[in-house]
Design a protein around this nucleic acid. Structure first.
Lengths: 208, 208
DNA sequence: ACCTACTAGTGGCCAGACCACCAGTGACCT
DNA sequence: AGGTCACTGGTGGTCTGGCCACTAGTAGGT
């Protein structure tokens, strides 16, 4: 037993993280099987499963019966969403989340406006034309989200980007939700970014 | 099996939620034992444990060997910690970290400046006098940290506060010099906050 | 009245079993 | 040679039963 007699599944989580890091595993990669992991970590399979289950619930990994366990891309995390589903209707918490998300967006915009390259511009423009072309509302909202994701990503700060992803996945699960921007808004957003006017860009988000 | 042949532990989570709601269980209350739950939910104990473990990782419940499982108050939820442990350590660069922390501080200051009460002011002043009184450098830095912590906490956003805590503690573990404020800086900070001048307050932090 | 030892109940952990499922493989038939 | 199909090994999904360590309450002794 370790010095601190820590719970086994927490220990496993830690070791799992080092396994992932040292193995250089990326999103989509396959983890060792539960039985192998149990042997690697010198623990029972059930303990390994307890650890994996925690991660699965959070959307950090995905398990497929008959195939294996795979690492999920950050865009599929459900950290905030899960917590929110259990802590119901806490107004203060909701306010905190929305407030924090707003802050992240604002910061990403002000960083991104000055980092936007010609390629970024082109990619965003392409998304816009795709948006205009389609009538499928589902596809439209997907593109809208992709547009936002690209804009946020331009900030060049991986940490902020992932924060935004987590917080947004929560907002999307809200009944009111609707974190989508329509075509016009996206276009204006792009224009403001071209002008490096992050304040105006932010206004697009805040006026909903 | 349910219609969608959902995974048992997810089903258990759902039932658990209804058990909590219908039982009117509050923070601090004790849940049924794992064996009882297994019987209630018509599942094996290991599946129940997998569900409970997920909740424990998030800090939604607390398990005490020999006693039982208890519901935790929202203030002890571990959303940020878990998020940080998986988002922070792998690909987060130092630049991202500092940038994000700076943003959190800035936002907390601008929120906090307008929420500061007489009590807050008094508490901060007390900390300042303690700081001035001591010569012990260790104690001084502790007080400095406490001062910052109080300032950040005034923003009234638990999420932001905990983000700051995580980011700061992580930053402190880096070889980079840490961010303590000396007595004079704390005093100026307090003065700016009194004037509700969050921009000037922020300058104290950013000039290091 | 106080301490002690016992007991029942709890979570912590594990080994093993069986199932459903998937992918690859090889034999078989055309 | 090409295509089909049953088989097989490996995987996660789940349950059972067991043993341990720990806690709190209790019955018993002093």
């Amino acid at each position: 037993m370790s010095i601190a007699s820590e719970k086994v599944y927490v220990e496993i989580l830690r070791k799992l993280k080092t396994i992932i890091q040292e193995g250089g595993l990326q999103a989509g990669d396959k983890l060792p099987s539960e039985r192998v992991l149990a042997h690697l970590v010198q623990a029972g399979r059930s303990s390994v499963r307890e650890a994996l289950r925690s991660l699965e619930l959070l959307g950090l990994i995905e398990t497929k019966r008959g195939e294996g366990t795979f690492i999920r891309p950050p865009s599929q995390h459900r950290l905030v969403e899960v917590l929110a589903s259990f802590v119901l209707h806490d107004d203060a918490t909701v306010k905190d989340l929305l407030q924090t998300r707003a802050m992240v967006i604002k910061e990403c915009l002000s960083l991104g406006a000055y980092r936007m390259t010609r390629e970024d511009e082109q990619a965003l423009t392409n998304l816009l034309t795709s948006m205009k072309a389609t009538e499928d509302t589902v596809l439209r909202s997907t593109l809208s989200l992709q547009f936002q994701e690209s804009v946020i990503g331009m900030c060049g700060n991986q940490l902020l980007y992932r924060l935004w992803v987590e917080l947004t996945s929560y907002e999307a699960s809200l009944p009111i939700g609707s974190a989508f921007l329509d075509y016009d808004e996206c276009m204006q957003l792009l224009q403001h970014l071209k002008n490096k006017d992050s304040d105006e860009a932010w206004r697009i988000f805040s006026r909903t």
